[in-house]
């Protein structure tokens, strides 16, 4: 005769066998997580075509401050932008471990300089949360949502909205030195 413990274990086993195992194949989205001035941000992986180490950058006169220059990528010229200003961050010099991510959105292709690329991960679509209501108005415009990376919050950015601002930032002539030393 079986003891109580054995009966309980049998019952548990029976219940477990009886449980229907439902596997849900959840849609995922690839995210490229990067850091900028200590904060974590992400772009959808579908919009990032390439990640490059820092290469010599050539300044093009007349460019707004957020375009530090162009780079030579295997014989092609790519623009490089700094997104600090769009995110309300102070300007910064590229870190030694800095990277240039080549992004494409809305037919526009450009490099984006970041401090480091932390990870490339697949995240369930359901884990993407709407932008935090505490975000300030200017930054909020470029934020697509939030996700958790371990115990850290990551701000997901909309490349298209950043690229969409390109035509809105002409350099004013008075940006040039007024009485330059010759």
């Amino acid at each position: 005769m079986k003891g109580k413990s054995e009966l309980i274990l049998d019952e548990l086993k029976r219940r477990k066998t009886g449980e229907r195992i439902v596997e849900v194949e959840e849609d995922t989205v690839k995210m490229v997580i990067f850091s900028l001035l200590g904060g974590l941000y992400a772009f959808p992986g579908s919009e990032i075509k390439e990640i490059l180490t820092l290469v010599p950058m050539y300044y093009v006169p007349g460019s707004p401050d957020f375009i530090p220059g162009v780079i030579n990528v295997r014989g092609d010229i790519e623009s490089v932008i700094k997104i600090n200003g769009f995110l309300g961050l102070t300007d910064s010099k590229p870190a030694p471990e800095g990277r240039i991510m080549i992004a494409v959105s809305g037919g526009v292709r450009s490099g984006i300089v970041v401090d480091s690329v932390e990870d490339v991960i697949d995240v369930p679509v359901s884990s993407l949360k709407p932008p935090l209501p505490t975000l300030s108005g200017a930054v909020r415009e470029y934020v697509a949502g939030e996700l958790m990376y371990g115990d850290k919050s990551v701000t997901v950015l909309d490349v298209g909205k950043i690229f969409g601002k390109f035509g809105d930032n002409p350099v004013r002539r008075d940006d040039a030195p007024a009485d330059p030393a010759v």
Binding site: G62, S63, V70, I77, V108, F166, G167, D168, P170
Partner: peptide, 12 residues
């Protein structure tokens, strides 16, 4: 050519 991003916002 200038990359489109640069051509769009360089007034020169």
């Amino acid at each position: 050519c200038l990359p489109p991003a640069l051509a769009a916002c360089n007034p020169v």
